Simulated assay, not measured.
Amino acid sequence: MGYGERQPLLSQDTVGLQPPASVDSPPTSSPRDTAPRAGTWGCGCSPPGAPTLPAGTTCVQYLTFLTNIPCSLLGLLGLAAGLWGLAVKGSLGSGVGGPLPADLLLGLVLGGLAVSVVSLAGGLGALCGSACLLRCFSGSILAFLGLEALGAALLVALWGPLQDSLPHALREAIIHYEDNPDLRFLLDQVQWGLRCCGVASYQDWQLNLYFNCSAPGPQACSLPASCCINPWEDGASVNDQCSLGALGLGAAAAQRVVHLEGCGPLLGQWLHQNICAAGAYGILLVVAQGAELLLATWLLRALTVHKGSTEGSRVGGHLGVSTGAPAGASPSANAAQADSATFPRSPGSWDKGSSPRACPSLEGKDSE
């Protein structure tokens, strides 16, 4: 500073004020920074200090949670039943180190696992307010609906050929009755439930190598116990020898021991009678899944709106803008007040009408 130049004066009003932070200065932490942000916990539950949701959204959360719990329990029940069946049949032990066993119970295991996982994700996502879990739940429901629609379309398109192939399928089941435990179980259930035997008549069991009258084994010229009229014979267990020699008897003698009518026509009639009930159950399932999807979508939208409003208020709080202008003030006055609250006054700048405090003046003259 040259000799005689005036030194800028600092008003006493500016004593104690911190200078504004420069661009290069590192950001300082604020107490507001420690507040949890809504929607930043990913696929987990919200932290304890997260902002609360409105009452309507909370009701939808609990409703979605309560409707998914029974589905999850049913899925776990199917999973446990399938695993128990596989363990009893020994399919799990035989499949170690090799491909998965081609078992009907395996489908029950996979279906129960999928239903339980998806329902659990939906319930926990709704209860915890997790957008990630709710999106996974919604995508899974859409995938289920697509698979169900595809299956229903294939069933309608192939209904006629499926009915025509029933006799052939029953004959194949009779031929491989002793070779495939799953076919044996299904065929026994059909013959017990419909009180029938064979495809067209009980003589169709001649196609099986073990029950044929020319077979050398002990089952020659006999029938499965599911063909018998009274397979228990007043006992606690099924008597496998209840139809011994029934294939060698005439119809008059065999009708006192086994069912003579075939299962082909009866199975077709049963399908015709229950197709409407199966369709009603399918429609009910689709409606329930659609309601779950709508609830999850509505809850996702509510969480997104709540997150945006929370972050907006948080950003406004960080700016520190005070809108304490009196009511009825003009927009220019409000803007001026906001600018004065945000940006501190520079030294030496004063409002009109205000007088600075007295300061000793320095008078210097340039001397040559």
Rank of each mutant, 00 (worst) to 15 (best):
252 A>V: 10
252 A>R: 11
252 A>T: 07
253 A>M: 04
254 A>S: 12
255 Q>E: 10
255 Q>I: 08
256 R>V: 03
256 R>F: 02
256 R>E: 09
257 V>L: 07
259 H>R: 15
259 H>F: 15
259 H>D: 08
259 H>Q: 13
260 L>Y: 08
260 L>D: 06
261 E>D: 11
263 C>L: 02
264 G>R: 07
264 G>M: 04
265 P>V: 05
266 L>K: 14
267 L>G: 00
268 G>V: 10
269 Q>P: 03
269 Q>T: 13
269 Q>G: 11
269 Q>M: 11
269 Q>K: 09
270 W>V: 15
270 W>I: 15
271 L>E: 04
271 L>C: 09
271 L>A: 11
272 H>G: 14
273 Q>M: 13
274 N>T: 15
274 N>K: 07
274 N>M: 06
274 N>L: 06
275 I>Q: 08
276 C>Y: 10
276 C>F: 14
276 C>H: 12
277 A>S: 07
277 A>V: 06
277 A>N: 00
278 A>P: 01
278 A>S: 06
279 G>H: 04
279 G>C: 09
279 G>N: 04
280 A>I: 13
280 A>R: 06
280 A>H: 03
281 Y>E: 02
283 I>Q: 04
283 I>K: 02
283 I>D: 04
284 L>N: 03
285 L>C: 15
285 L>P: 14
285 L>D: 09
285 L>K: 08
285 L>T: 15
285 L>I: 15
286 V>W: 00
286 V>K: 00
286 V>H: 00
287 V>D: 01
287 V>I: 13
288 A>F: 12
290 G>Q: 02
291 A>H: 03
291 A>N: 01
292 E>H: 10
293 L>F: 07
293 L>S: 01
294 L>T: 01
295 L>V: 10
296 A>R: 01
296 A>I: 03
297 T>E: 02
297 T>N: 02
297 T>C: 06
298 W>D: 05
298 W>M: 10
298 W>N: 07
298 W>H: 13
299 L>H: 09
299 L>G: 01
299 L>D: 05
300 L>A: 12
300 L>H: 11
300 L>C: 14
300 L>M: 15
302 A>S: 14
302 A>R: 08
304 T>W: 05
306 H>K: 01
306 H>R: 08
306 H>P: 05
307 K>Q: 09
307 K>A: 04
307 K>I: 02
307 K>N: 13
308 G>R: 14
308 G>F: 00
308 G>E: 12
309 S>E: 15
309 S>F: 05
309 S>I: 08
309 S>Y: 08
309 S>K: 13
310 T>R: 14
311 E>A: 10
312 G>Y: 02
312 G>L: 01
313 S>R: 14
